[in-house]
Amino acid sequence: MKLFNYTVLALVIGFSSCNNDDEIPEMMTTAIQFENTLNGKDLVLNSSTFTLPSGEAFTPKKFKYYISNVALINSKTGIEYLEPDSYHLINSETNIGIDLGMIPSSNYDQIRFSIGVDAEANAKTDQTGDLDPNSDMAWSWNSGYKFVLLEGEFVHAQTKERTGLVLHIGRNQNYKTITQPISGIQAGKPAIITLTTKVDELFLNPNALKVSELPSTTIMGGELADRIGENYAEGFVSIK
């Protein structure tokens, strides 16, 4: 047993010393996965087991958002990998990951991404890939994309009735860029970065929203939408 341990140790040392020289592969496979959560649990659509931060029972029906312009940064060397044509629709039903494929090897220690799509991509909707307007995320009466979409039903605190909640948040002022430290990524080794998306955060910091007290629970623009934009700028998507 002891012998075995030493063998493993010797192998590891041998292996890493090789790596430390010049045998780090030039490219490494990298992927990002998202865990969509509410109340600290995995988000499940059409399940009635959730509550909103303001206390109302809530059944989520649709939850989708754009993550764009993803970059990995090595803050020590200044190396930055920026994914080209980087627009990803994260859909809680079908697509909960971003495959960056083979990227230049580096000890990346930061990730930068944006919620929504940048002003240039948001100015037109005749686009392909994840920006194809077939996804229900393009506005046709006001050219541009919904950045974050949440639809569901909650039990109203006063009327006790099931009430629709529709959040379609877009517009350029709600394009938010986030930089987070990441750890454990080693040049040349396959990397999986896990991000957690907390639906709760749409209703929390800095603008606490009590849905039962809102003048309208259909929010598709205007001041209230911008306040939700402020909320998702921090804490909504973060490193697990």
Binding site: K124, T125, D126, P133, A138, S140, W141, S143
Partner: peptide, 20 residues
């Protein structure tokens, strides 16, 4: 385009009448 100018160009506008 549109009466309220909400569509930035024809390319973006067309999805309105096509899908409404």
């Amino acid at each position: 385009l549109f009466w309220d100018g909400g569509a930035n160009d024809l390319e973006s506008l067309n999805f309105g009448p096509l899908t409404h």
